[in-house]
Design a protein around this nucleic acid. Sequence first.
DNA 1: TTGTACGCGTTATCAT
DNA 2: ATGATAACGCGTACAA
Lengths: 341, 341
Amino acid sequence: MTTIKDVAKLAGVSPSTVSRVIADNRRISPATKERVKKLMTELDYHPNMIARSLINRSSHTLGLILSRSTDSAFSNPFFSEIIRGISAITQSHHYNLMLATAEDYAEEARQCLRMVTEKRVDGVLLLASRVNDELIPELISNNYPFVVVGRAPDLQKCYSVNNDNIQAAYTAVRHLFNLGHQKIALLNGPEEYILCQDRYEGYRFAFREFGIENDPSLVKKGSFSQDDGYRLTLELLDSASPPTAIFAVDDLIAIGAYKAIKEKGLRIPEDIAVVGFNDDPLASVIEPNLTTVRIPIYKMGVAASTMIIDLLQSHDIFPAQKILSSELIIRDSCGSKKKSL
Amino acid sequence: MTTIKDVAKLAGVSPSTVSRVIADNRRISPATKERVKKLMTELDYHPNMIARSLINRSSHTLGLILSRSTDSAFSNPFFSEIIRGISAITQSHHYNLMLATAEDYAEEARQCLRMVTEKRVDGVLLLASRVNDELIPELISNNYPFVVVGRAPDLQKCYSVNNDNIQAAYTAVRHLFNLGHQKIALLNGPEEYILCQDRYEGYRFAFREFGIENDPSLVKKGSFSQDDGYRLTLELLDSASPPTAIFAVDDLIAIGAYKAIKEKGLRIPEDIAVVGFNDDPLASVIEPNLTTVRIPIYKMGVAASTMIIDLLQSHDIFPAQKILSSELIIRDSCGSKKKSL
DNA sequence: TTGTACGCGTTATCAT
DNA sequence: ATGATAACGCGTACAA
């Protein structure tokens, strides 16, 4: 392996000079600069980033933990989109990205802590904040830099990037109200996710605005899966007073709902309307095409990674919470206005 | 930051003793071992992995470059599945995973080389080998450990994990022949991907076996996209003698084909049969459900990462090429046997 | 069983 | 404009 010393020796200079050439230090003579540079390419020398990290006390690396449980709040497109956004930024800022996955939340927290305590990464990006998150307080008390993608629990000491879950859910449900629906069911995910709470709140908000009492029997919760969407919709349809519309907090859930609805011999949107969330590629393929909320996942990845890099480099304070707005994509699963008033 | 020296000082021993305790060296007295361990947890000491990497000359990290171009051979589910497989192994072997993405192939190669030359990673996993791959010879000549997911170009000096593309394509096309089809079109991807060449070969192999001349006008190539699937299928349907069946080398392409077929007022499978590749979640959602080839992506990730870790740890030689078999998932897009013979 | 001394490859400080 | 030296945090011969 060729090191900085080898280059120095062959160039007839000291290692520090070579180091300065690498850093493009201006108080080095153009002559030696040229000579050393040439030699570096000749020898195919590349600085050892490990050594550099040690002395700089920085790995120049960001950490990201993905949940790999099937019951994940994050369907595949979410993962790849957020990674695309994050790595676009890490790349352009010459940062590295270290990835880990975990089966459950406890392991996720362990992995995350290990990354920072063992100095493998300078900071971490957190996906999917929980209601009683134990990781976040830990990170805070140790002063480990991090940015949450999602809304951080109550503590407002966190930097975070989120989409407007409450607003988005409100818009989706309002859309159904405007179409003449009154009995609108909610297919929610696990309540430990803050994002589920937020979407639930947007749902209730719409009910309040339209002056309609919210029937608790219309609210179901399960995992972010097709199976649970199917199961819960069946429950809904078999109940005494079934809904005329369903709002699912994830497209996968909505697809499960489709299956149950079709199985019951009902038509979408004539008999029952459906709205999903996330704009999964599936949404524009399933028949009828699913009306859904599109959230700017890529942009959230960009924003979150930009934020933590700024944080690492300047220790500065910004608008610590960044909220990106989402968009209701209207397709064919809700039909147009019901009846006349 | 608490270092090994701090622990040593407070424990009244030398740093080397602490180091040995960490390594669980057996020639250290149980007494001091206990004492030091206790102190480590008390002080919440964690070894600095950067320093450890420097002296061990190993980052204990694997590198993975993802292509983030839209024209990628790898649709989203492929990415997440292979990452799941890889990280399951890196985790259990206490390795780290470093991720980078690139827009085009040149950048992909650069990123990859940087990772290894700058000692950020001990070895890399390569996705999607090209026909004239320039990265692979470079890695070989520098003795950088790597494993290819896919078939390496001619050079058989590579370790690789692949699925049986030729066999799988053959099986898919044979399925169509057995159903009574003769005019079977191929919707192929960019020919610079070896996997496309292999699937093409499987296609031709089936024709040879059934003693049927392969009409070149039935073979189209484009990108791995819905749009190109749509466009090429339209060309096919508008031609003088349109096919009665289509084999697409990716489900996304098949979905584009669906769109074109439906637009022409034709029915699947009655008028035209379709087979896809990859078993994308979309395949079991689109109507009619798509018959497709399922490849063991997760297992390939597991196999490839296991292979490179073995390689890094033992410098040993195994069955250097590992091929995993795939499976034809028969759904509703081909119907049952046409006509009687 | 434990401590000493050195080195991993780099950069920063202080000289010159 | 350049060089010598120390230090980053750790592991390991070698010595004791």
